[in-house]
């Protein structure tokens, strides 16, 4: 019994210590941001690894999610004779929820885990330490550009996901199921608001990009410098990111769209 309490207590202390280290890490990372103004090529380089390499999975997933939405939405709406509303249904689900959330989950799996593994490996092979001794601050040289690249990539990826998804739903709805294309688009336009829906979706994706990139970089930087430690850190990045995305999504949705 005492042992159970003790391990619970140790787990709690560990968690708080990690949280503390994570926030110190965030502060150091943000302090490294201004120096990027003079070295923007570092960010461009990272945009390639973090952003460009995630585009393919985002395109494919977005297309299929949109097609499934089109199919399922049609089957439900047609019972009420409201299949004209398919456009709204699809655009609102994608722009408000699925775009930001699913692309952030994919981003955590694709780019987040790669970032953790890369930083963790650099730590375990003493590259970070070596840089420090060459008077190059890894926070500025390595961490900050990756963070900014994640922050920039996420909303762009989410927008691509939503746009492709709507296109996929249109393909299924209009091409396959024969929903009137004029009604599809005009209803969508009438009911989807730029500020209420699209900008809020963009804000969500920026928040997710911030959190996922932060978790990924911190897990790599804080990893036990062995191959096993880096492996575990990579898993933690994906799991913690998923929790953070879904939890924050509820909070943000309540703040933006709900009347709670």
């Amino acid at each position: 019994m005492i042992e159970v309490l003790r391990s619970l207590g140790r787990w709690g202390l560990d968690t708080f210590q990690r949280l503390g280290r994570g926030h110190i890490f965030l502060m150091q990372m943000l302090a490294g941001m201004p120096s990027l103004a003079f070295r923007f090529s570092l960010v461009v380089q990272q945009l390639f690894y973090v952003g460009v390499l995630s585009v393919l999975i985002i395109l494919i997933s977005g297309l299929f999610v949109g097609m499934v939405l089109g199919l399922q939405g049609y089957n439900t709406l047609v019972d009420f004779g409201a299949e004209e509303s398919l456009g709204v249904l699809v655009s609102l689900s994608l722009v408000r929820e699925l775009g930001p959330v699913v692309s952030a989950l994919l981003f955590a799996g694709r780019a987040g885990s790669a970032l953790t593994a890369e930083i963790g490996l650099m730590k375990s092979t003493e590259q970070l330490s070596g840089m420090e001794m060459m008077a190059v601050d890894p926070m500025r040289r390595i961490i900050a550009p990756r963070f900014l690249a994640g922050l920039i990539s996420m909303p762009l990826l989410a927008a691509i996901f939503s746009a492709v998804g709507i296109f996929g739903a249109f393909l299924v709805g209009h091409g396959l199921l024969g929903v009137d294309d004029g009604a599809f688009w005009s209803q969508m336009q009438a009911k989807t608001d730029w500020y209420e829906d699209i900008l809020n979706g963009v804000i969500k994706s920026i928040v997710f990009g911030f959190v996922v990139t932060w978790i990924a970089l911190f897990e790599g930087y804080d990893a036990t410098p062995t191959s096993e430690g880096v492996g575990r850190a990579t898993t933690r990045t994906v799991v913690h990111s998923a929790f953070a995305i879904l939890g924050l999504d509820f909070v943000l949705t309540a703040l933006m769209f709900g009347d709670i």
């Binding site: 655009s91 722009v95 909303p155 762009l156 990826l157 691509i160 939503s162 492709v164 989807t192």
Partner: peptide
């Protein structure tokens, strides 16, 4: 990539929203 992302936002603004 950046151009595609901005184009997607533009499509969402002009074609999807009001």
């Amino acid at each position: 990539f950046v151009a595609a992302g901005i184009a997607a936002l533009f499509v969402l603004a002009m074609k999807v929203s009001n």
